[in-house]
């Protein structure tokens, strides 16, 4: 029980990821697939951000009073782990870019087939 509670964030991300994954495979509508893809990616981002969390008084990764000239010693436990955040900034950008390209493809498909339902497109192809 302890162990389930102590990692609830990870369980939730897994549920989220499963929802996205299911939508990507099972949905016939291309836009729905794309939404699923976004949810999937966002779930992974949630996972990464969860890695960065430190309980026990850690604050956001911006050094307090950093604008002053003096540099005082900082211990690692004081601040959250910034690395996952950095990685996820990149991942978000990648996600948006993928979405953009995918939407452009959807528009192209709609132009050719007049629909964005996969089964109708396959029907039209025959």
């Amino acid at each position: 029980m302890e162990f389930i509670i102590s990692k609830y964030n990870y369980w939730m991300y897994i549920v989220l990821m499963m929802i996205g994954f299911y939508a990507m495979i099972a949905k016939k509508n291309l836009v729905k697939k794309l939404l699923g893809l976004n949810i999937f990616q966002w779930a992974i981002i949630l996972f990464y951000v969860s890695i960065g969390v430190k309980k026990g008084g850690a604050t956001i990764p911006i050094i307090a009073g950093g604008h002053g000239e003096m540099v005082h010693a900082v211990s690692a436990a004081q601040y959250l782990n910034p690395l996952p955040h950095v990685l996820m900034l990149t991942a978000i950008v990648v996600g948006v870019s993928t979405t953009g390209v995918a939407l452009a493809l959807i528009i192209l498909i709609y132009r050719r087939f007049g629909t964005v339902e996969e089964d109708e497109i396959l029907e039209a192809l025959k």
């Binding site: 990507m24 794309l34 893809l37 990616q41 993928t98 995918a102 493809l105 959807i106 192209l108 498909i109």
Partner: peptide
């Protein structure tokens, strides 16, 4: 475009 879209989904 359809092929590419499917590739995009699976590739992602």
């Amino acid at each position: 475009p359809l092929a590419s879209f499917n590739y995009l989904i699976i590739g992602t």
